[in-house]
């Protein structure tokens, strides 16, 4: 469903991605790993359409459509959804209001009716339970005063409600204690489906103990230096990134 071909990306004139190739098929979970500064977060940000990233070469297609030609909201409406490493606070805007606006924007874009309020409430309450979140979360302002763990759970909650075709999760494990990570991992695992792709960006292998990926890619200096199955992540855990870096330099 997602095809990234020979992607070159610059930020402030500095090359970050240098010829990255990646294919994700429906039903697959891919993990992007790599040392700090390798460009892991850049990849998901470019796919989502964040400002400030200049694609100088290459292409990104999603279900045959040219992603780079699409507005940010169009990408989300097409089913590409990014879970943030640092979710943004929006004072005064209730969580539930954002959820509903997002869901209805996506439904409207697909030519569907807006969701009836009772159906929406039921959907949200179910998913809240899955994420072990209290209903009071819905009435709080988006991410305002949330702990790190609450913010991450909230990102997954949005995924569960919005049901994207490709879920991209940027360092969703950062700053989580082990209990919170389990909840988040359970949420992500419940997203796994035949018709859905998942892209995990993570620095640490430990998340992958809970979410076992189909493919693991090691990003070094702006391109994928090595790909493998879940076993590769375990090797990285044992040996660190240096050997991949050295091999790719050789």
């Amino acid at each position: 469903m997602l095809e990234v071909k020979d992607l070159y990306v610059e930020v402030d004139g500095q090359a970050i991605l240098k010829g990255l190739n990646l294919t994700i098929k429906a039903g697959e979970v891919h993990a992007i790993m790599g040392p700090n500064g390798a460009g892991k977060s850049t990849l998901s940000a470019v796919i989502a359409g964040k400002d400030g990233y200049e694609v100088t070469q290459g292409s990104i297609t999603f279900e045959g459509k040219d992603v780079l030609e699409m507005e940010v909201e169009e990408r989300a409406q097409a089913g590409l959804l990014l879970g943030f490493q640092y979710p943004v606070e929006i004072p005064g805007v209730k969580n539930i209001y954002l959820l509903k606006a997002a869901l209805n924007a996506q439904r409207t874009a697909r030519g569907e009716e807006e969701i009836p309020a009772p159906e929406f409430m039921k959907l949200v309450k179910d998913k809240l339970g899955d994420m072990k979140m209290d209903a009071s979360f819905l009435q709080r302002a988006v991410n305002e005063g949330f702990s790190g763990g609450e913010k991450k759970r909230n990102e997954i909650l949005q995924m569960l409600v919005l049901q994207p075709k490709l879920a991209m999760l940027d360092e969703i494990d950062s700053g989580l204690d082990i209990d919170a990570m389990k909840v988040v991992a359970d949420g992500v695992n419940s997203l796994r489906a035949e018709d859905r792709g998942i892209l995990l960006v993570t620095h640490y292998q430990r998340l992958l103990d809970y979410i076992v990926p189909d493919r693991v890619h090691v990003l070094v200096d702006g391109r994928i230096a090595r790909s493998g199955d879940a076993e590769l992540a375990k090797q990285l855990e044992a040996r660190g990134y240096d050997w991949v870096v050295e091999e790719s330099a050789a």
Binding site: E73, V88, E89, A102, Q158
Partner: peptide, 13 residues
Amino acid sequence: DQLFYCQSRGITE
């Protein structure tokens, strides 16, 4: 960041 966050959920600017 706030705008991008909302837009990346499918909400128009």
